[in-house]
């Protein structure tokens, strides 16, 4: 039986100030699926995430999440969507502990005017344990390294007890070893919590071994399929240009594209 689509874009178009960032996207993401989203600068990757987060609505077509039109998503729906933003390093002097950051993940579920209960504290503790940060829970967040901050932000997303986890370039700006640890952690959490993951990245070689499905954006949905089907010169060249190189490294496809990363 095919799993139920948890996210459904139907010919959805997203625009800012009359400029179309993403046009006519039709796409289903199923429960428990791990989707990698790739594309060059300005191809609409972050727009896709903003749509999923309910920060922008389609100007044409529709987007349904949990069988609910995104415009009608209520707080309790949003609380089921965990999000790891593309984030600059936090001000080192910002007075917040790791525990406080992770607890923020519960605020949507706790609701206005209510305080965290024992159950919330247990969930936060479990989330921090899952990312290996529980021993530093009282440490100031701003004093952590970039990789550690990302782990805590993953714990915050997990504290929401999400069904969907959205990741926006979480491995940008951190060293290769930490990148590998983070992508391993995300894979483990995907399996452990049966999370539906939408992972936006410019790093094709990092995402292709871990995602089950890759989608390629170029202001529209250019391609969707298993990484082995997508990582071909025929599919990537129209998006990344003729200079894209599809090579093999350790028997796996290795892609070299001319692309500089930005926040589009």
């Amino acid at each position: 039986m095919t799993p139920h689509p948890i996210i459904r874009f139907s010919n959805a178009t997203f625009s800012y100030k009359g400029h179309t960032a993403l046009e006519g996207v039709t796409l289903d993401v199923h429960e428990g699926e791990f989707v990698g989203v790739i594309g060059p600068n300005g191809s609409g990757k972050t727009t896709l995430l903003k749509g999923l987060l309910g920060l922008i609505y389609p100007s044409a077509g529709s987007l349904q999440i949990f069988d609910c039109a995104c415009e009608a998503l209520r707080c309790e729906h949003r609380a089921r969507i965990g999000y790891l933003p593309q984030k600059e390093r936090t001000d080192p002097n910002y007075p917040i502990t790791i525990w406080e950051v992770a607890m923020m993940g519960r605020y949507g579920a706790i609701g206005l005017l209510k305080r965290p209960k024992r159950q919330d504290r247990e969930i936060v503790l479990e989330s921090l344990e899952a990312v290996g940060m529980v021993s530093l829970k009282d440490h100031p967040f701003g004093q952590l390294s970039g990789g550690q901050q990302q782990r805590v932000l993953i714990a915050r997303a997990l504290s929401q007890r999400p069904d969907i986890l959205l990741l926006d370039e979480p491995t940008t700006g951190i060293d290769a070893t930490t990148q590998k640890r983070l992508s391993d952690l995300i894979c483990r959490l995907h399996q452990q919590y049966k999370l539906t993951i939408v992972f936006v990245t410019h790093d094709i070689n990092m995402i292709s071994p871990i995602a089950e499905t890759l989608i390629v954006l170029n202001n529209r949905l250019h391609a969707k399929g298993r990484p082995s089907e997508i990582l071909t010169k025929e599919i990537l060249s129209p998006v990344y240009g003729e200079e894209v190189i599809v090579a093999k490294r350790d028997q796996k496809p290795y892609i070299i594209v001319h692309d500089t990363h930005d926040h589009a």
């Binding site: 987060l53 209520r74 309790e76 999000y83 993940g105 605020y107």
Partner: peptide, 10 residues
């Protein structure tokens, strides 16, 4: 701390 994240969390 993070207005966008708060908005996205409902």
């Amino acid at each position: 701390f993070d207005q966008d994240m708060a908005e996205a969390s409902g």
